[in-house]
């Protein structure tokens, strides 16, 4: 049983199936992407039990019963998450393949501490790879979202 974005998914997978592949292929949640399958690119980043993890380096069986959040659960109905808004406003995406990973990476960090300073945000954003944007607009988006999230908190 996988508990994703508040919904239970009953799936039956081999032990070797990664959480990323299971979300994508067995739960139908293809917003989580797979770029390298060895932990470097971060496209597969999701939130498990409150922290951002590489879903390619975790087996689905390990995530049983834990709360999992993916990009599909980030917006609240029609209302985008401040990070999603900021990525659009600051042109933090081009092809958009890396975007779900960056969103989940930043969401986990900012929901824990919206007061991250610029150096901490740089460290955070350097966790994932983007080939299109050159990162500066992603940094700007995360910083802008942090301000919004501080006000909301």
């Amino acid at each position: 049983m996988l508990h994703v974005n508040g919904v239970d998914h009953l799936v039956c997978v081999e032990a070797r199936r990664s959480l990323a592949d299971t979300l994508r292929q067995d739960c139908g949640l293809t917003g989580t992407h797979v770029g390298c399958e060895h932990g470097v690119c971060g496209s597969c980043t999701v939130i498990v039990d409150g922290v951002a993890v590489r879903a390619c380096l975790m087996f689905a069986v390990q995530a049983q019963g834990l709360p999992i959040r993916t990009v599909e659960g980030l917006a609240c109905g029609d209302i985008l998450h401040p990070l999603q808004e900021a990525f659009i406003a600051h042109h933090g995406l081009q092809c958009g393949f890396c975007t779900p990973g960056f969103l989940m990476l930043a969401a986990a960090a900012l929901e824990q501490d919206a007061w991250l300073d610029d150096a901490a945000i740089l460290d955070l954003v350097s966790s994932n790879l983007c080939r299109c944007t050159g990162y500066q607009t992603i940094l700007a988006a995360v910083k802008a979202a942090a301000i919004v999230m501080r006000e909301e908190a």
Partner: peptide, 14 residues
């Protein structure tokens, strides 16, 4: 962007 930031992009591997 709106679809892409929601994880509603449609990529071949999906």
């Amino acid at each position: 962007d709106p679809a892409l930031v929601r994880g509603q992009g449609r990529f071949t591997a999906d």
